[in-house]
Amino acid sequence: MNIIVCLKQVPGTTEVKIDPTSNTLVRQGIKSVVNPLDSYALEEGVRLKEHYGGKVIAITMGPPQATEILRDAISTGADDTILLSDIAFAGSDTLATSTTLAKAIEKINKYDLVICGRQTLDGDTGQVGPELAEMLGLPFIAYVSKIETIADGKIKVQRMVEDGYETIEAALPAVITVVKEINVPRLPSLRGLTRAKSAQIPTWTAQEIGTEKGTVGQAGSATWVVKVFYPQRVQTAEMLKGDPEAQVETLIEKLKEAKII
């Protein structure tokens, strides 16, 4: 079993904060981390490898610094890693991102399963997984919460839907996205950390994966961000005065006035 896991580097959660007075972004340092939901994807890949044999290949598209998260991936069980990095990939939307990832995955060629996180913390679209599946022309299952079996070239999973869960089967190779209920990601092992330190991380460029001009990066993106702004908030609540007794009285009056009760 060869399993490809797609990871994305995102700004650490605690770092993106809005300063309420100046209403601008406050960043402390530029530490980036692996998208939290993607660590569940990686963990699931590693568990499948431990159970069925084979290897886990972690890939990411991003700037050169994104090698950091690939090293982290090695320390928690990835065998191989690939960084997709090229100035031509800058400004990618989900369409361009999934096109790029698909090209790289086609180049890897021998694989049985592609695992993505459900969605990222920054882009927050959850679109790359399903779009990637379509680019590769493969079966797709979203929101997987349990992999039941892999046998006879088929995968059987449980996935969460709005009002319960479904058991679904698909032929391999397939693309799935996972939710955090699927597992508990492990901590790095000592052996992994040592391996991560000295590992060579190959970088593939646009030319190496053979993307066509105008299909990747900003030029390959159908959507453009035209404006970025911070939601404006000022205190609007009418504060109810007095002791709790009085506050509650006034509140009930207000609710009656508004015909809510």
Binding site: P11, T13, V16, K17, I18, L25, L121, D122, G123, D124, A222, T223, W224, V225, V226, K227, V228, F229, Y230, P231
Partner: peptide, 12 residues
């Protein structure tokens, strides 16, 4: 985006 910290206007 960014967990609701930032709003983006997007066109196609």
């Amino acid at each position: 985006t960014f967990g609701g910290n930032v709003m983006a206007t997007i066109i196609c």
